[in-house]
Design a protein around this nucleic acid. Structure first.
Lengths: 210, 210
DNA sequence: GTCTATACTTGGATAGAC
DNA sequence: GTCTATCCAAGTATAGAC
C-alpha cells in the first residue's frame, strides 16, 4: 500500500509542491517526502519535469470533475456565486490552490513547461464558456467572458499565494454574494440596452481595425 | 558610459529577465549579457536576489510614474479605458510585461522574494483605489475594486506570458472599448438601485458567519 | 522494480591579485 | 572597483548491483 508505485510518487510530488513550492520540488525532496528512492522518479517518469506535469494533470482533472459537477445544474448568477465560493474554499483548504499557483508560476519561469500547462488550462476555459452561455444573459460575449474568468481566477490564485494574509479572494466572494442579488433585477435592463447587436461603433475615433 | 556601474548591472538584469526569463536570469547570464564580470553582481548587490529585486523596483517605479501621469486627469470610464489600453500596449512593447510576469512568478516560487514583491505591489493598489474613487460611481467599493483590478491585471500579465499567441488582453480591451459607452448611461440606474447601503442581507440562507 | 553510488553540470558566492 | 580563480552546494540523471 505504501509501495512506491507511480501513484505514490505523484502524491509525493503534489505534497511537495504544496509544502515546499515549485522551487523546492526537486527529485530529491520529493523522494525524501514520499520515502522512496530518488532514482524512481526517473524510472517512472523519465524526468522531474515529466513527474511534475503528471502531478498537475491529475490535480487538474480531479478538480475539473468537481467543478463540472457543482456547476452542472446552476441556472442563475445568484446560485452560481455561492457555488463558486464553496469550490474556492475547498481548493484553498485542500492545498489545490497552492499546487496550481506553484506550477503555473513554474510554467511562466520555465519555457519547457508552458505549452503543456496551457493545454491543461483549455478545458477550464471551455467549462467557463459553457457556463457563461447558460447562466449569463446573451449580450455577454461568452468567449471573452470565459477568458476573463479564467484569467481572473489565475490572478486570484497567485495573489493568494503571494499574500495569503490579505485574503482578497474571500473579500471578493463576500462582495459578490452581497452584490449579486442587487444586480440580478437589473440584467433585463442591461439586456434591453445592449441587446441590439448590429449597431455601428459608438466611438470610432480609436485605432482602426485590420 | 558603458562602465559597469550599478545601473549598467540593473539594465543587464532587466534585459536578461526579458529575454531569458527568471530561470535564465543567473548571475552568470546577466554578466555575460552586460559584458561585465560576474563577481560584480555580488560586489554591488550582495546577492543575485538583491539585484533582481533592485531591477524590479526600478521597473516598477518607472512604470508607476507613467501610469500616474496618464490617469491623473481621467474623470470617466469612457476616457479611462483607452488610456489603460494604451498603457498596456506600451508595457507589452517595452517588455515590461515580461519582466513583471517573470519576477512575480519567481516570487511565487521563491518565498525569499515574496515579501518584497508584495511591498512593491502596494503603491499600485493605492493608485487603483484612488482612481476607482474618482472615476467609478460611489456604490462601487473602492478597496475591493482596486484589489480586483490589480488581481486581474496580474492574471492578464501571466496569461500573456504563458500564451502570447492568444492575446486575450487585446481582446479584453477591444471588448471594453466596445462596451463602455453602452454601460455608461446605465450607471445612474445601478447607483439608484444599489445606493441604499444599510439594508439587511438578502439571502441569509448561506453558512453562518463566525 | 528498487537500491547505492556516482558522474556531470550549473550556479551562487568568496578570496585575493591587480 | 574590477578581474581570475576557485570553492562549494545542490540538483538531474544514469550505471549497475541486487
Amino acid at each position: 500500500m505504501t509501495k512506491p508505485t507511480a501513484q505514490t510518487i505523484v502524491d509525493a510530488a503534489l505534497e511537495t509542491l504544496r509544502e515546499e513550492g515549485f522551487a523546492g520540488a526537486t527529485s530529491r525532496a520529493i523522494a525524501r517526502r514520499g520515502e522512496f528512492n530518488q532514482a524512481l522518479v526517473f524510472y517512472y517518469f523519465g524526468s522531474l519535469e515529466g513527474l511534475l506535469l503528471a502531478a498537475l494533470e491529475q490535480a487538474s482533472e480531479e478538480r475539473l470533475a468537481r467543478y463540472r459537477a457543482a456547476v452542472a445544474d446552476v441556472q442563475s448568477i445568484d446560485s452560481l456565486i455561492p457555488v463558486m465560493a464553496d469550490l474556492w474554499e475547498q481548493d484553498k483548504a485542500s492545498g489545490h490552490v497552492r499546487v496550481i499557483s506553484q506550477m503555473i508560476a513554474g510554467a511562466v519561469n520555465r519555457p519547457e513547461l508552458t505549452q503543456r500547462v496551457v493545454d491543461l488550462m483549455q478545458p477550464w476555459v471551455e467549462l467557463a464558456e459553457e457556463t457563461v452561455r447558460r447562466v449569463l444573459p446573451p449580450f455577454v460575449p461568452p468567449r471573452e467572458a470565459a477568458d476573463a474568468i479564467v484569467t481572473f481566477y489565475l490572478g486570484v490564485n497567485l495573489m493568494t499565494n503571494l499574500d495569503p494574509e490579505t485574503a482578497r479572494a474571500d473579500a471578493f466572494f463576500a462582495k459578490a454574494r452581497e452584490l449579486a442579488p442587487l444586480l440580478t433585477p437589473l440584467l433585463p435592463l442591461l439586456s434591453a440596452s445592449a441587446g441590439s447587436p448590429g449597431r455601428p461603433a459608438t466611438s470610432p475615433d480609436q485605432a482602426s481595425a485590420t
